[in-house]
Each structure stands twice: as structure tokens, then as C-alpha cells.
């Protein structure tokens, strides 16, 4: 990966009061290259969605962000909200988990497109607006005959196609898709994913795909990042991560998937930590089968592996930073049933 279009540097997003904030995203760095498809996976509540929204500056009231989101040489976190707003649409797009309620029920599909195009390209003629809208909708499989219809006349899958078209009509360089198929049935899910996987070919758009579904990542992503408790545990090319997961959490996450050969379902014991008061040291140590003594004392240091992967785990060193004798297995009580989610 040479030319990153978006660089996230040490991004932190905190919710709530300054005294006891929820650290939803806690020092995340991530690069996304031109036309690259990056999968972002992790359990519910690990900060995936917050990271996705934080990139676009779309955080709820009361959230505070610091760090850097560099796009085109500018730091979005430090930019005035109005300037970030102007970039949403033409530069950065976002599609959501729930397509049923994402279109204004009082407006026709055509109104949504006209509004979006006129907001960012006020000089367009009506004919041009219509041509570009229909062209983008057509690529998403929505026929021109339905352009003047209202949102309630479409199914969930079709609404998600419309949402994707609405995001792509301005040709953004990066599209963040926040669990875009979670609320759709499997057939429709496949269709939507095929559309998203084709983005780089059809539109040259990079994609950050936030999902629970590891199968989707394996199939359609170039690189993947595994998030745990507000941090990226492991990040690298999909092939390498799947073949040989470097972080114990990634390994357990991959083991938890179901395939035709699955006889017993594996689950990671325990529950994701509370982000107001996360465990000291490595945040995964209470659930980690390989935890060492160092893991509950010192925060792990990011290591780069030979194949270009990044991993946040003491198993990969640096060994000189592990105190004498702290490489021994961590002794602790067994995880009680009550601690499991």
C-alpha cells in the first residue's frame, strides 16, 4: 500500500463526562489506500461504528475526538464543522446498517438526489442532475421508472441500493459502510455485497466495510483490521490474517465462525470489557488463553511483522521490554459463568 487517501492517526473518541468518559475509540491508527477495500471487524461495542462515524466527523452530541484524520493533507478532526460538512458527500460517503428509515418519507427518490447534487454542485442543470442520478441508480439496479417514487414503495434491499447510489452519485473517494447488510436477508445481502465489492472497479471508490461477518471480509476485502475494546488488535492483508492470525483475539474470533464442518460452536469466554474502566495492561488479557504476567501490567506495544501486519500483543514482543520473569503464564481464577455475556 503506497498512496493512502485517508490516514487515521492516534484517533480517540470519548463519550460522556470528562471525569468518567467512555473510551469508544482509544488511539486508533489506520490507513486506507486508493480503491482499497478494508474490513473492520470486532464484537458489538468495540468501537467500530464510532470509528467509522468519527472519520466523517458525524459523532453524536457530547462526543469528543482528538488525534488526526488526514484527508488530502488536512486534519478533519481539527477542521471547522462546516468545512467537514462540505467534504461529506463529494469526498467521504457513509451508508448505514438500517436502510428502511434512512430516506425522508415525505420526499421522492428524485428529490433526495436533486438535493444532494445541488448541495455540492450548485451549477448543475436539471437535465444533468437527472442524468447523473439515473445513471448511478441504474448501476445499482434501480430502473428509471422508479425515480419519482417514494421511499415506502421500495423494499429494504432496494432502499439500501438507493442509499448506496445516493452516496456514490457525488463520486466520493472513500465510502464507509457501517454493517450495510445486517438488516437484510441473505440473498439481498449477497447482492448488496457484490455491488460494494465492485465499487473499486466501477467507481474507483475505496471502501471501509464495518461488519460482524468474517466471511464477507474474507471474500471481498483487501485488508482487515480487528478491533477490540476501542483499539486495533491486529491489522494486515486479509489472506495473511486468516491464514495465520497473530493476535489471540483474532484467532479466537476466527474460530468462532460457523462452517459446514463445524461440529461444536466455539465462543470466546467472558464479555467485552467496560470501556469506562477498561482492564489495565492489554485489554484482552482477562479473556486471553495465552496471557502472560506482563499482560495485566503493561500496555502492549504495537509490533510490525515481516509480512506488513501490525499487531498489539506481548506475544510478539518486543521481548526486551518484558520485565524479567513476566513472560510466565498469568495465574488467575477461572472465568466464571456469570462473567460471560
Amino acid at each position: 500500500m503506497t498512496d493512502a487517501i485517508l490516514q487515521v492517526r492516534n484517533l480517540r473518541v470519548y463519550y460522556g463526562t470528562p471525569g468518567k468518559p467512555v473510551r469508544a475509540v482509544d488511539g486508533v491508527s489506520l490507513d486506507i489506500g486508493e480503491s482499497e477495500v478494508v474490513g473492520l471487524v470486532g464484537e458489538s461495542g468495540c468501537g467500530k461504528s464510532t470509528l467509522g462515524r468519527g472519520i466523517l466527523g458525524l459523532l453524536p452530541d457530547g462526543a469528543r475526538a482528538d488525534g488526526e484524520v488526514l484527508y488530502d493533507g488536512r486534519n478533519l478532526v481539527a477542521m471547522p464543522p462546516k468545512a467537514v460538512r462540505r467534504m461529506r458527500g463529494p469526498e467521504l460517503g457513509l451508508i448505514f446498517q438500517e436502510p428502511m428509515t434512512r430516506l425522508n418519507p415525505l420526499l421522492r427518490i428524485s428529490d433526495h438526489f436533486r438535493e444532494t447534487l445541488e448541495q455540492h454542485e450548485p451549477d448543475l442543470t436539471d437535465a444533468e442532475v437527472k442524468r447523473r442520478s439515473l445513471e448511478t441508480l441504474g448501476r445499482m439496479g434501480i430502473p428509471p421508472t422508479r425515480f419519482r417514487q417514494y421511499p415506502h414503495e421500495f423494499s429494504g434491499g432496494m432502499r439500501q441500493r438507493i442509499m448506496i447510489a445516493l452516496a456514490l452519485v457525488l463520486r466520493p473517494k472513500l465510502l464507509v459502510a457501517d454493517e450495510p447488510t445486517t438488516s437484510l436477508d441473505v440473498i439481498v445481502e449477497g447482492q448488496i455485497l457484490a455491488l460494494l465489492a465492485d465499487l473499486k472497479n466501477n467507481f474507483g471508490t475505496a471502501l471501509l466495510l464495518i461488519t460482524h461477518n468474517l466471511g464477507i471480509v474474507a471474500e471481498s476485502c483487501d485488508r482487515m483490521a480487528v478491533m477490540y475494546a476501542g483499539r486495533i488488535a491486529e491489522e494486515g492483508p486479509v489472506r495473511e490474517v486468516f491464514a495465520d492470525p497473530a493476535h489471540p483475539y483474532t484467532r479466537d474470533l476466527l474460530r468462532s465462525t460457523i462452517s459446514l464442518d463445524t461440529t461444536t460452536l466455539y465462543s470466546i469466554p467472558g464479555a467485552p470489557p467496560n470501556l469506562i474502566d477498561p482492564p489495565p495492561g492489554c485489554r484482552f488479557h482477562p479473556r486471553c488463553p495465552n496471557a502472560m504476567r506482563v499482560c495485566d501490567q503493561l500496555e502492549p506495544i504495537e509490533q510490525r511483522l515481516d509480512d506488513g501486519r501490525r499487531v498489539l500483543c506481548w506475544l510478539h514482543g518486543p521481548s526486551e521490554r518484558i520485565p524479567q520473569g513476566a513472560g510466565a503464564p498469568l495465574e488467575r481464577e477461572a472465568i466464571g459463568v456469570a462473567d460471560e455475556a
Binding site: 466523517l56 460538512r85 457513509l94 448505514f96 434512512r102 430516506l103 438535493e115 444532494t116 442509499m163 457525488l170
Partner: peptide
Amino acid sequence: DYIEAARARGIAERR
């Protein structure tokens, strides 16, 4: 949800 979606498309806050 459509309010957030409109913001995500960069529609001006006043609108």
C-alpha cells in the same frame, strides 16, 4: 435516521 443520513451526505445544517 434520515436526519443523520442527510448530514452524512453533507446537506447544510440549516436545510
